[in-house]
Design a protein around this nucleic acid. Structure first.
Lengths: 344, 344
DNA sequence: TGTTAGCACTCCCGGTTAACGAGTGCTAAA
DNA sequence: TTTAGCACTCGTTAACCGGGAGTGCTAACA
């Protein structure tokens, strides 16, 4: 275990490095108010901390910087999430209050607020669309051959998908089909739609619809768009201001990664309740080796819905970000409850 | 006017510079197959071309690079759009044929193809949403207080907007309202919806609906979302591979700009038929001073719909890009005609 | 025994210098 | 009119150097 003094020094170094992005030397540590030891003493401790793997030296005559293990220790044992200031809280509330927002807009807005408060990149995963339930389905014919299938979920989310109308189905039949679907499928989670379609609905359609096989085909393509959850970004370029991303090649790699929604969503998705911190290589993904990812989940009815997260350099203001995400995760959960749960 | 030989040399320099991104000297120009003059002769001509403003020197003992005026001259007088190779054409066709695509997907796909073929950044502006006409409108209540307004256009585009239901309106009335709207407003350009609402529709509603003022309020907010045209990007980070964007600050500035859809749309929108080239400062926008923007329009029923464009360094393969965009602009117009026009 | 002052050493950084090479402009000859 | 020759310019690179920040070690001190 680390001694009291070692903790103090480790914390001081992390603090300083997070703030100034430069190796910190014994002299500057010893000058801190809460530090009553000479540089020489500090140096001894720093050597020990380095031996233990919590610090490293960029080169032999530079100061020390925290290692990944150092950050990890700090985060695990010494982190007290920063409480938000009153101003921050009211700022956030204000941004949500602006007007009635649909589910998606709330999520999007959250991403914006987060990135503007942290000046890191924020990434918010929307709910697995399949988790939500069918509220209403519409089939709007556009021409003789084409139509748009519109699915509205219980959260007010709207999905639409162009479909072609198979030979033989006429407008009247389509209307009948839609009525049947709305009767039978309201409240069904989107993820079960296709299954229901090939069982229960197939039978019902067979009874009432002439060209039921064509109808099934149509509906199949209407339901097929397996939209994963949406990924909302804000402050994508914030991270370029960090001195560790001064190299265009690295930047390109990182930004390319961020364009791949599926990848990002896989990396960010977190099923655990609460705040989760992944530091550097813990992300198991080379382009993020110098980044830390902090995520928190939000939920509704106690069911996990999505994830809010921050992507920054490993040299990140952990306490602040953790505090913020914690707040957001709870606030978002509350907000959603307030807005949507009462409609059940 | 420039002599035959000057043209030849200017073209050679542009070719070389576009390809290698380095100032080109008299020696390398004279070595070209079609160049039967000594370096000294070339040097004289180059000095003349510089005096005329078509070339410039980064410093006194470097080779020459084309000036903006040089590119402009090249583009205006010497550009023969490169015809696409058979392979390219069939590649493109293939990508469109994959499956039935709704309007938006086609546009999006086009952006992808363009960027992958050019390795520049491609930007495609969707149709001014207001230009398209209302096909159908739906109001789907989600809870007692909230609903989703869904607008389907004649191109199969779907817009949706969360609205709150004013006190006093009940489900029955909402249904009546929707019916009235669909009867009266089908075929009306979206841009005229709000006007119609406050004139014709207001009167009709006043006649048939009890809480018609609340209804107007509801519809107003349903129509308010003044969605400009959508902007689709592809290959956003391609431009980072260009050596002229080796500076992170410049990159940040550029990428920040690209996040501002409204700005980009204003800069790219082109009303003129055909291909349009803006070189460097011709863009009238500082972050694009080292960029060229080439755009072409696509249309339907002879009516201008949107713009396809390429953003690259001023040192761009003009002939190839112009050829491509020309092809795209026509192909897209055809495709849209084939898919949507017959439904009229 | 823990702490600290002192000191030699290491290594980065910024500035200077020198050699080099690519390219030019000019002059004079073909 | 073209071209060979040559002096000159200027950016690039490598080598070098001194200063400074920081370290590790040692020895003295409380």
């Amino acid at each position: 275990m680390l001694t009291e003094r070692q903790l103090l020094i480790l914390k001081a170094i992390i603090d300083d490095y997070v703030c100034h992005a430069e190796p910190v030397g014994s002299r500057s540590v010893s000058k801190r108010d809460d530090m009553n030891f000479s540089p020489a003493t500090i140096r001894n401790e720093m050597a020990d901390l380095e031996e233990l793997g919590f610090l490293e030296k960029p080169h032999s005559s530079a100061g020390r910087i925290p290692s990944q293990k150092g950050y990890r220790y700090f985060v695990d044992h010494m982190l007290s999430p920063a409480a938000l200031s009153k101003n921050e809280v009211s700022d956030i509330r204000l941004m949500y209050e602006q007007r009635f927002l649909e589910f998606e807009k709330i999520i999007q807005q959250s991403a914006k607020i987060l990135s503007s408060l942290t000046s890191y990149t924020s990434i918010v995963l929307g709910p697995e669309i399949f988790e939500s339930r069918l509220h209403q389905i519409q089939l709007v014919p556009i021409s003789k051959d084409n139509a748009v299938a519109i699915i509205v979920t219980d959260t007010g989310h709207v999905e639409n998908q162009a479909v072609s109308i198979p030979e033989g189905l006429d407008i009247g039949e389509i209307e009948k089909i839609v009525n049947i679907l709305n009767e039978r499928l309201r409240g069904v989670p989107l993820i079960h739609l296709r299954h229901k379609l090939t069982t229960e609905i197939r039978n019902v359609l067979a009874k009432y619809i002439d060209h039921h096989e064509q109808a099934i085909e149509l509906l199949n393509s209407a339901f097929k768009d397996s939209h994963n959850e949406k990924v909302y970004y804000a402050g994508k370029t914030n991270i370029l201001s960090q001195p560790e991303f001064n190299d265009v090649n690295r930047v390109r790699e990182l930004l390319n990664t961020l364009e791949e929604d599926a990848l990002v969503s896989r990396l960010f998705r977190s099923e655990e309740q609460g705040v989760r911190i992944r530091i550097g290589e813990e992300n198991q993904f080379a382009p993020f080796d110098d980044c830390s990812v902090i995520t928190a989940t939000y939920s509704m009815d106690g069911k996990h819905l999505g994830t809010v997260g921050i992507l920054g350099p490993t040299r990140m203001e952990y306490q602040r970000v953790v505090g913020l995400l914690d707040f957001f995760s709870k606030d978002l959960t509350n907000l959603l409850k307030q807005r949507y749960q009462k409609s059940d």
